[in-house]
Design a protein around this nucleic acid. Structure first.
Lengths: 166, 166
DNA sequence: TATTGTTATACTCTATAACTATA
DNA sequence: TATAGTTATAGAGTATAACAATA
């Protein structure tokens, strides 16, 4: 991303934003991109992409997780997860084993190297988070997180409702 | 987008998210996508894309705006703006005229039809916003907006700082 | 029949770099 | 030399649909 000749739309009183001014999605997009870029810079060019870091993080925390569950947890389609896992596997960070009791499924686990890499990246993630915390502050952050979660749940399509929920 | 077999990651106590749990960017992404999808659904398949709606909105509010300024205001590169404007022009919603005093620049304006279409879409945008307001509430929304703006400004790269600012 | 994961494919959104025409 | 806008191109990130293996 890394735009060079644009500016935060946030700070241009000379341009009238109209309805956009109170359009949450617009600022959600800008904030998401800012956070994404900042984290990408922190990770560096040869590291994991943020999306794959999310996968590795969930696998690390849930050894043996299957891909369908992983897709749900990460908010991605299973086909996208397949692609991400391949990349993690190619780097030797995870390994997959077939489940004996259901041979359609694969259990994903972080390899020893994957754990090391994960910890290293998690440290960078914490740098990124500290930067955000300094901007947002603890109180606002908690409120922000819960508000974002409410938006995700509140706007969910019917089809997006998980199987096990009313 | 419109994922069918995933669920809000927000509501899965059975999956441990680890560091992701407090990772703002992760929820920023989910919330952004939810809002984007909701607005896209509201607009319908043959209407404008959210990104082009943002352009039209800014043009509508700032008749005669040039593309470089538009790029800054919308947070996009000028090449992306060029593509978006072409689509709006092809639909007859905007028109561009060369500036007499600087013949490198073009002034963009909404056509009469563009104004009509804009108002129609703006009404849909308000439906979308009402839905969000119902979820978030007025108080939290104000706080959310200002927090998002602070994130955008606070994380801005040096290169992203607008020319006219310290 | 239904589900897990894979594949092939395509789409959206966006930026970079090189270019032109003006300044 | 510098700037406004265009073009060609590429890349990230993602989904859909059809499919094979398994349940």
């Amino acid at each position: 991303m890394t735009i060079v000749d644009t500016a935060p739309a946030t700070d241009r009183p000379d341009v009238e934003l109209g309805i956009l001014e109170e359009f949450l999605g617009f600022y959600l997009r800008l904030a998401y991109e800012s956070a994404f870029d900042d984290f990408s810079r922190e990770l560096g060019p040869d590291s994991l992409k943020p999306g794959n870091f999310a996968l590795l993080s969930i696998i690390f925390e849930n050894p043996g997780i299957t891909q369908t569950v992983l897709a749900r947890a990460s908010g991605r389609d299973k086909s996208s997860v397949t692609a991400g896992l391949r990349q993690l596997e190619d780097k030797g960070l995870i390994e997959r084993t077939r489940l004996e009791d259901d041979r359609r499924s694969y259990a994903s686990r972080a390899t020893p190297e994957g754990c090391v890499v994960y910890e290293r990246i998690a440290a960078k993630a914490r740098n990124h988070m500290r930067r955000l915390d300094r901007i947002v502050g603890a109180k606002r952050k908690a409120l922000l997180m819960s508000t974002l979660k409410d938006i995700v749940d509140g706007l969910a399509e019917d089809g997006e409702t998980p199987a096990g929920r009313p």
